[in-house]
Design a protein around this nucleic acid. Sequence first.
DNA 1: AAAGGTGTATGGTCTGACCATATTTGGTCT
DNA 2: AGACCAAATATGGTCAGACCATACACCTTT
Lengths: 223, 223
Amino acid sequence: MRTFETVLAQIEQRIAADGLTVGDRLPGERQLAEQLRVSRSSVREALRVLETLGVVSSQVGRGPDAGAVLISRPDGTLADLLRLNLGLTTMSAREVLDTRLMIERWSAARVTAAPAAMTEALSAMDAATSPEEFVTHDIAFHVALTDAAGNRLLSAVLRALRDALVSNAVEAVRRLGHTGDLQADHRRIHRAIEAGDAAEAVEAVTAHLARAYPGLSPSHNVF
Amino acid sequence: MRTFETVLAQIEQRIAADGLTVGDRLPGERQLAEQLRVSRSSVREALRVLETLGVVSSQVGRGPDAGAVLISRPDGTLADLLRLNLGLTTMSAREVLDTRLMIERWSAARVTAAPAAMTEALSAMDAATSPEEFVTHDIAFHVALTDAAGNRLLSAVLRALRDALVSNAVEAVRRLGHTGDLQADHRRIHRAIEAGDAAEAVEAVTAHLARAYPGLSPSHNVF
DNA sequence: AAAGGTGTATGGTCTGACCATATTTGGTCT
DNA sequence: AGACCAAATATGGTCAGACCATACACCTTT
């Protein structure tokens, strides 16, 4: 058992024992090292792991009084993880998940109106002046679609996938132009959702992805 | 931008540029520090992050010659992460992903025989003497099913989901007994795969999940 | 050729130091 | 008394250098 791993365990235990929650502070690195009878290096390595897991976040210069580490909420870490697993298969993974999201969402028939966030994103994409800006709102559009569905876990996975694919998306937008067919696709999806037409929505999403990533044949190399 | 973060980025880039894959080695910590003009501490913090993300794994005493850090397969880390996101919706997420995996796998029609690992797991489940042991091989069975499909990213996500759900699975096995219907389901799935009957395989998986997690109505609260 | 011993570079850890930063504190001015 | 500003201070971030136990590569011995 490496030292920083025992530190990790003791910090976790301390968080649980003291009932620390989001916003609370841990002791400073030096104080933590002294309390646990280890070097500051080991404490730092443990904190780095906790930071990677989204448990704490550090910030410099908190002056005297009060520790400098605080409990935070895990957010971007899944994206980091998936980005490292990025390969040629990722794109088709997104395609499948997106289509299935649509299918399930509509077969459940729990939503009858397009979320306001989708409408906002649509307008923002119209006003975008660069591919990067366009993609930002493009992601927001699809995230809104996913979020409305209600499964937070899968929603997080999909959001992470899209964040990881941001560079691919920018390239696609640059290639196709950000004022043309892509927006037409988005409006078609939006219309289908407002109309409550599940089959049309699924087909629209599939067509949209096929246009954005033309090298992709349906169901090819998906699993 | 903290130093170890730039180190992180440079290591990631190096992995991509050199086409490093599972089993390949990175330079040693000292050499890496010298190449990137940073201290060994910063390199170590970066490596700790990569280790947390499941990208590398370190081991001491590799003697002269050859670096000591090697690229590894992300395994338990995603499960750790997803466990933090665990909620009531996870089960239905697994159900959907599993079924879709089957559909896509067979519609692609790229596999005609059941993997040997599935057969092995089937026998091991027969020989199991405790629910825990049964679930271990149960997971192996489903993982083999997923792995044969070829999308490593989704495969990792599914494996993580199952690992995160291990306690639920053990409980289900304890409730149903580990010699009866569950194994019958597995054999039905296995038979369908060997026969190349996609529709039957999907139906078998769906039925199996419905039996294991009876509180779940199809497509309920899935997205 | 096989077996065993040894050297060596490695990761793991520690110590002690310096820096830039943000908070606190204390003093100054109005 | 109140508002404002500057110095003191503890923090996280980084670095350099050292020591240890370990496991591999190589060489000696049989």
